[in-house]
């Protein structure tokens, strides 16, 4: 690889939730995602993949270990600083889209930039470009209620892409979509991968994870690389 630091580097990161007994949601984990990688994190529900997603997305703190995002040690950041890293470094795509219904597609995309530090000129132009990139250049002024599920998810992807984040973090991106629409979204992810965008997709769906160039399985809070079939960890 190049001299660039990896986009994501987890070193012995673990997460436990207090209780009797404490729940070890994530065992000490090492994970490295390089720039341009397309990684699928696969696991059944309750496997700890949501916990991993939240830690990767800086929405949750690891109990132990160190998480470097773009070479920045995030474990010592204050909450506003984590928010700043989030706004610049990570683009989220959610299963349920999380679009605001009272705003147009364009306004939803533009929302991604209001918390971003630094210059924010030409926000509208960048947002229009992002919508064009996901093939929705003709629907910039449409409200989410008039969009199909696939279109909604495209808007969400455009929102995640607009600031050119280091990492596109997708949480079950096709969970609410039918198979045809899912395939379109996955095709789009392939295109984004081809453009050099770093993707981490969290899913329980083999069809989705099969499209990634690298698969990481998580089960009972333990992470393991695998390149084969379900039997490996079934």
């Amino acid at each position: 690889m190049s001299n660039l630091p990896p986009v994501v580097e987890l070193i012995d990161v673990s997460r436990s939730f207090p209780g009797t007994p404490p729940v070890e949601a994530l065992q000490p984990t090492n994970l490295r995602i390089n720039k341009g990688d397309y990684v699928a994190i696969v696991g059944p529900s309750g496997s700890g993949k949501s916990t991993l997603l939240h830690i990767l997305g800086l929405l949750d703190y690891p109990t132990d270990g160190t998480y470097f995002l773009d070479g920045i040690d995030t474990s010592h950041l204050s909450e506003p600083e984590r928010a700043g890293v989030r706004s610049v470094g990570i683009g989220f795509v959610f299963q349920s889209f999380h679009l605001l219904n009272h705003r147009t597609a364009l306004e939803n995309v533009m929302l991604a930039e209001i918390y971003r530090p630094g210059g924010q000129s030409e926000r509208r132009e960048r947002s229009v470009a992002a919508l064009q990139q996901v093939g929705l250049g003709h629907r910039v002024d449409a409200f989410p209620t008039t969009l199909s599920g696939g279109e909604k998810q495209r808007v969400a992807v455009a929102r995640a892409l607009v600031g050119k984040p280091s990492l596109l973090l997708a949480d079950e991106p096709t969970g609410n979509l039918d198979s045809v629409t899912s395939a379109q979204i996955l095709d789009m992810f392939d295109d984004l991968h081809a453009l050099g965008i770093t993707l981490a997709v969290i899913t329980h769906d083999d069809d989705v994870s099969g499209r990634a160039e690298r698969r990481v399985a998580i089960r009972d809070g333990v992470l393991s690389e695998y390149a084969g079939t379900d039997e490996v960890w079934a």
Partner: peptide, 19 residues
């Protein structure tokens, strides 16, 4: 390896106009 060059991290902002 892991970046020891810990730079200061920009906080997120919210301008009055956006507010």
């Amino acid at each position: 390896m892991s970046a020891a060059n810990q730079t200061t991290v920009a906080r997120s902002t919210l301008s009055i106009r956006d507010l």
